[in-house]
Design a protein around this nucleic acid. Structure first.
Length: 849
RNA sequence: GCGGGCGUGGCGGAAUGGUAGACGCAUGGGACUUAAAAUCCCUCGGGCGCAAGCCCAUGCCGGUUCGAGUCCGGCCGCCCGCACCA
């Protein structure tokens, strides 16, 4: 063996794997399959450490499963549609297509040196017509299945650029480029009926045992099932057609605490009033400037306008409540109208205080009396309270009971009905943009809205478009819109909306099973490969991407593109943390921060000038703060194995990991050390079995058991710690050459998922047969794992005071005798019997006195 | 604002409710070297003590328990998401 030079050897091993086609996924009915998938990247043009972390984790899983004899599918593709390509075209000229495919080529070139176990023959980009054409075919099937419809919905409208803005393009209520105040505008848009599956998507979460609990909770809250009462107020003074006002409430038990009714600025009644009332029109217009995001609405100051209309309280005809238009009422939730009970809702309290509305408690804590409130009293619904303004049920009961008895009472008296509502809204997929999958629909003067004929798919994006002006190039293209109606043949116009890019990423996992098929999926392939056994990605996708994918899998099943077993497409989910780095900055003359790349800083100073830098604690790597480390540079300097080893070693995978130069160097040093151990062993003279052989074998088998367990539980940092221990044992061992070689081969195997190139090198040097990547995963011999003795700490009153070593299976009664005979214990007890003696076999002893 | 998560030495972290700090980094000491680098060995939470040992310590405040970093309640700080960023 020569020096450890990864730049030489890594490429050679990658070629060996490619030549042997070891990562080619094959449908082999005789083997168990394993499908591991990392969330595919957006082709920005550069890979970053977050990608390295994500794909290395997937690679560890994939390589372990290959060694364990599975037929493994580990694909990679590109989430290639989206706004950045259009922005690039606007800023720098060029075409989104050229930009995107160029980026893909660049990123792929940066990824390949990592030595990932990817089957590149399955690669595709979502902007390939071959892919989005199949997506259009499924859209048409979903239309036929009743899962698609059109309705009006509001968008952010930039009145200067005359274009629709994404939420992230609205900054403080203004368009990001024009700076104009953004307006809300209604457009007819395409929707998927995800709400058909609200209950199903909620209840099925219980079956996702291998998903993080937090993701299931977030999804459940997002779906937001609620039980409540829907009823109608009779109105007084409302325009014709608004004699009744439907409201929905989850707290009908607080009806007697009502002090106002409120409607959304987008409510039909508000619109009706707007026409004839300038004050209403002005207020509503102001509300519409807040923007469309729920975050913006919630953060905005709560404001309302008294419409002058009143409603009768359903339980007391003489009781009238004012009707407000309020900026925090969402038209999309419930009926877009509510009644306010300030005593038991924080937002209503704030509102009532502001507008001088009455505040009456409906219930008080048990044992307390009714008194004026300084803030809303909102106990958990499960808590028992004393109802002081009650119309149904017991006077002392839980909120839950209160709600149910109130619903029963109202239903019995003809006031509304109990309903189950969901917060989840239908999925609006229309985008007024070019770089997305065209919605395959035609507008015909006689036939109306008609799906394109499947024979005409894909509906391709035209190449001859310009981005010199804002707005949708498809809309202003001279000829692209012109087509023939697929139904009657008359001249017709194409839909110019394209699809939300979340649609693209909602089924790519299924497409990987047959990436180039002439149908969206192939029954044999999805039958064999689905489901994804392990999905890995960022926690930022906990709700939308994963929920849309779960819906889409169901829609694909309904339209015959996925088997029933695949309606939950991801068996196990792992959400990894971010990669962070310290931030380095100096100040310019005006005191503004000037950021510096880590590679330009050494020892707290700029390399170039020696100027001292300020160091800000680690944050997510971002270009704007320049706290980025380019994986390409790291690989050039240390090799891919060092990058992979370090990114896995320093933090638990679900937490953020801080990239540090010292850590990367330490990783490199360790790999060197392993290399040197191997070199020494390779040169050891052959000898008979030595006295240290047995101890070494015990350590090896302990490591096999621990590392395997750690990998299977996504504790890669702990797997690496165990490998460090084994390396320490190995370098101190006095075992024979033969035993050392066996141990090193095992260590190479255990290391191979993380540092596959070095592992091949060592495996080869230690006389391993073939490639380590395909060598069967080692199994721990249980006989070598058993310990004969255990050391038990002895606590006295919960504090560790002594310890005893006893045979592993000594009965508790025997242990007790030994403990009581212990000098420290005897001294502490001073002749008294212990109050309590707790023996946890194999773990601990606690003497209480 | 709402929903979810996280918080342990100088640093990254380890710890089925059972010895807090595995493993690694940094620091300090030593070996090797003319010297340095590399490598190897030892030390390494804080305080008191000659020592045996004792006390304090897992963001803060309380609670449950023989025993709490771990479970429960309340705060503080940071991070993720909020439906047109991907």
């Amino acid at each position: 063996m020569a020096r450890y030079e990864p730049s030489q050897s890594e490429a050679l091993w990658q070629k060996a794997w490619a030549d042997a086609e070891v990562f080619r996924a094959r449908r082999d009915e005789s083997k168990r399959k394993y499908y591991v998938l990392e969330m595919f990247p957006y082709p920005s043009g550069r890979i970053h450490m977050g990608h390295v972390r994500n794909y290395t984790m997937g690679d560890v899983v994939a390589r372990t499963k290959i060694a364990q004899g599975y037929s493994v599918l580990h694909p990679m593709g590109w989430d290639a549609f989206g706004m950045p390509a259009e922005n690039a075209a606007m800023e720098r000229g060029g075409h989104p297509k050229t930009w995107t495919y160029g980026n893909i080529a660049d990123m792929k070139a940066q990824m390949r040196p990592l030595g990932l176990s990817i089957d590149w023959t399955r690669e595709f980009a979502t902007c390939d017509p071959e892919y989005y054409g199949q997506q259009q075919a499924m859209f048409i099937d979903m239309m036929a299945a009743g899962l698609v419809y059109r309705k009006n919905a509001v968008v952010n409208w930039d009145p200067v650029d005359m274009t629709v803005l994404a939420n992230e393009q609205v900054i403080d209520g203004r368009g990001w480029r024009s700076g104009a105040m953004v307006e809300r505008r209604e457009l007819t848009q395409w929707f998927f009926k995800i709400s058909d599956y609200s209950e199903e998507l909620l209840t099925a979460l219980d079956g996702l045992k291998d998903w993080p609990e937090k993701v299931r909770i977030m999804q459940a809250n997002w779906i937001g099932q609620s039980r409540g009462l829907q009823f109608a107020f009779e109105t007084k003074g409302a325009p014709q057609g608004f004699e009744r006002l439907e409201v929905y409430t989850t707290r009908p038990d607080t009806l007697m605490g009502a002090s106002f009714a409120a409607i959304s600025p987008d409510h039909p009644l508000a619109r009706a009033l707007e026409a004839g009332n300038p004050a209403v029109a002005a207020f509503v217009a102001e509300c519409r400037r807040i923007g469309t995001s729920e975050e913006a609405l919630e953060k905005a100051e709560k404001r309302g306008l008294d419409t002058g209309i009143t409603v009768r309280h359903p339980l007391d005809q003489a009781w009238e409540l004012p009707v407000y238009i309020a900026n925090f009422i969402l038209m999309d939730y419930g009926t877009g109208a509510i009644f306010g009970c300030p005593a038991h809702d924080a937002r209503d309290f704030e509102f009532a205080t502001k507008y001088g509305l009455s505040i009456h408690s409906v219930f008080v804590p048990e044992g307390e009396i009714d008194a004026p409130l300084t803030e809303a009293f909102v106990p958990p619904k499960s808590e028992t309270v004393h109802y002081v303004r009650r119309f149904a049920g017991e006077s002392v009961q839980s909120g839950e009971n209160g709600v149910e008895t109130a619903i029963a009472y109202c239903e019995g008296h003809g006031i509304g009905k109990g309903v189950t509502n969901y917060r989840l809204r239908d999925w609006g997929i229309s985008r007024q943009r070019y770089w997305g999958c065209p919605i395959p629909v035609v507008h015909c003067a006689t036939c109306g809205v008609v799906p394109e004929a499947k024979a005409n798919l894909p509906v391709r994006l035209p190449d001859d478009v310009s981005f010199d002006q804002p707005g949708n190039p498809l809309d202003r293209h001279p000829t692209w819109r012109d087509c023939a109606c697929p139904k009657c043949g008359a001249p017709a116009r194409r839909e110019t909306d394209t699809m939300d890019t979340f649609v693209d990423s909602s089924w790519y996992y299924a497409r990987f099973t047959a990436p180039h098929a002439a149908t969206p999926t192939v029954a044999e392939d999805v039958g064999y490969w689905m489901n994804v056994d392990q999905y890995i990605g960022g926690i930022e996708h906990a709700i939308l991407h994963l929920l849309y994918s779960r819906f889409f899998a169901r829609a694909m099943h309904k339209t015959g593109h996925l088997p029933a077993k695949a309606i939950e497409p991801f068996n196990a989910l792992f959400t990894q943390g971010m990669v962070t780095h310290e931030i380095y900055l100096t100040r310019d003359a005006a005191g503004r921060p000037v950021y510096h790349l880590p590679e330009d800083v050494e020892g707290g100073q700029l390399k170039a000038s020696g100027e001292a830098v300020e160091v800000i604690p680690s944050a997510k790597m971002s270009k704007s703060k320049k706290n980025v480390v380019d994986p390409v540079n790291i690989i050039e300097r240390f090799g891919a194995d060092t990058a992979r080893w370090f990114i896995l070693s320093d933090s638990p995978p679900e937490r953020d990991v801080e990239w540090t130069a010292a850590g990367a160097e330490a990783a490199f040093k360790f790999l060197n050390r392993v290399w040197l151990i191997a070199e020494r062993v390779a040169e050891m003279p052959v000898s008979d079995a030595g006295p240290g052989d047995m101890d070494l074998m015990r350590a090896v088998h302990r490591a096999i058991a621990d590392v395997t367990f750690a990998i299977e539980n996504f504790a890669f940092n702990k797997a690496i710690a165990k490998i460090y221990e084994l390396a320490n044992t190995l370098s101190r061992s006095a075992a024979s050459a033969a035993a050392m070689k066996v141990a090193l081969r095992a260590m190479a195997q255990l290391m191979s998922p993380m540092v596959p190139h070095l592992a091949e090198e060592i495996w080869h040097a230690m006389g391993g047969a073939g490639l380590v990547v395909t060598a069967p995963w080692p199994e721990a011999d249980p006989a070598l794992l058993v310990e004969d003795e255990v050391t038990l700490p002895i606590q006295i009153n919960g504090k560790r005071r002594a310890e005893i070593t006893v045979p592993k299976d000594m009965p508790a009664s025997e242990v007790e005798k030994l403990v009581l005979a212990d000098e420290t214990v005897a001294r502490a007890l001073a002749g008294q019997p212990p109050k309590k003696l707790i023996v946890v076999p194999g773990r601990i002893v606690n003497v209480v006195h």
